[in-house]
């Protein structure tokens, strides 16, 4: 069983000293990422995703707890970790004045990839990342999506068993995002690569085998996307009221209503039971002269689950 666990943390804590005292960016998280899966660490900005990733990689000293990758301790065996892990930082962190080819060669060299392997691997990786036409372009002149693909290619040049990606699609257009995730899909399928990805985007969370939801340094939920969605109690009703503000205030106070979320001009209402509550809401609203369009039950997505779980965590804190 432990053989299958690639990334493991126990009670991992990272505190930063600030002027106002210590702040725990990571506050005791337990994570297990299995071999060959795509694990998404999701959470709002400032939840501690980046800090957690950096501590697991050994880039930051941990304050307490344990963390390891492939059995190598994050603090004691950092160089063993670096040999078998690829990492794509959140910001573009490759030397921008070097060309695509120079960059990928540099990372091959520091990982001591032999000349022969280098000659085989680099063209394949560039082709895979769709960068084969841009080898002599300075990295800083690439588009946002291509920069991310180059960073991914550079992180794969030493054929790691694990890649850790910190918000890899930040500032990337939707088409490039999709392309990037397709690349990750290929990597998972063909190379059985273990992928650890931090993201605030819920559509990306849905693409993961398992997710962990982080909020204020704590892991507030984890499991498959379906399991996480199942953690939110009740059923979800969606509708578009004619008077948004009044409708929202009214529905929030009704019996059996667990939670109300806004979704554009629509309201998403979690209720304990669909059929009767739907009628009650409709009655209550029309009594106030508010009409609603398109009322019906929908499957809760990651986004609703995420908002629901974060809200619950905030209320309980």
């Amino acid at each position: 069983m432990t053989e299958r666990i690639v990334i493991c943390t126990q009670e991992l804590v990272k505190q930063f000293n600030t002027r106002g005292g210590t702040v725990a960016a990571v506050d005791g998280i337990d994570l297990q990422v299995r071999r060959g899966e795509t694990f998404g660490l999701i959470g709002p900005d400032g939840a501690g995703k980046t800090t957690a990733t950096r501590v697991i990689l050994g880039l930051l000293r941990r304050t307490d707890g344990r963390s390891s990758i492939l059995g190598h301790d994050s603090m004691d065996d950092t160089y063993a970790i670096r040999a078998c892990v690829g990492y794509v930082a959140q910001q573009f962190a490759l030397p921008g004045d070097m060309t695509v080819m120079e960059n990928i060669r540099f990372f091959a060299n520091v990982h001591r990839v032999g000349r022969k392997e280098r000659r085989q691997r680099i063209p394949k990786l560039l082709e895979f990342a769709g960068l084969d036409g841009f080898t002599s372009r300075p990295a800083r002149l690439l588009s946002g999506g291509m920069k991310k693909k180059l960073a991914l290619a550079c992180s794969l040049v030493h054929q790691p068993q694990v890649v850790m990606l910190d918000e890899p699609t930040l500032g990337v257009d939707p088409v490039s995002r999709r392309e990037f995730w397709n690349l990750l899909g290929i990597l998972r399928a063909e190379r059985e690569l273990t992928i650890f990805v931090c993201t605030p985007y819920m559509d990306e969370a849905e693409r993961c085998n398992r997710v962990g939801l982080m909020y204020r340094g704590k892991l507030i939920a984890h499991g498959t996307p379906a399991e996480v969605k199942g953690l939110v109690p009740g059923r979800l009703i969606e509708f578009t009221p004619s008077d948004f503000d009044r409708a929202m205030a009214l529905v929030t106070g009704l019996e059996g209503v667990l939670e109300v979320q806004t979704y554009g001009l629509m309201l998403h209402v979690f209720v304990d039971e669909t059929a009767t509550r739907q009628q009650e809401i409709q009655c209550a609203l029309s009594a106030q002269g508010i009409t609603c369009k398109g009322m019906g039950e929908i499957e809760p997505g990651m986004e609703e689950a995420f908002i629901g779980l974060v809200r619950r965590a905030r209320d309980s804190q």
């Binding site: 160089y79 670096r82 930082a89 573009f92 962190a93 921008g96 990372f107 520091v110 960073a151």
Partner: peptide, 14 residues
């Protein structure tokens, strides 16, 4: 300053 140190630090360079 430009953040490239982060990507260098995850390589085996001492």
């Amino acid at each position: 300053e430009v953040g490239t140190i982060e990507q260098l630090l995850v390589t085996p360079i001492r």
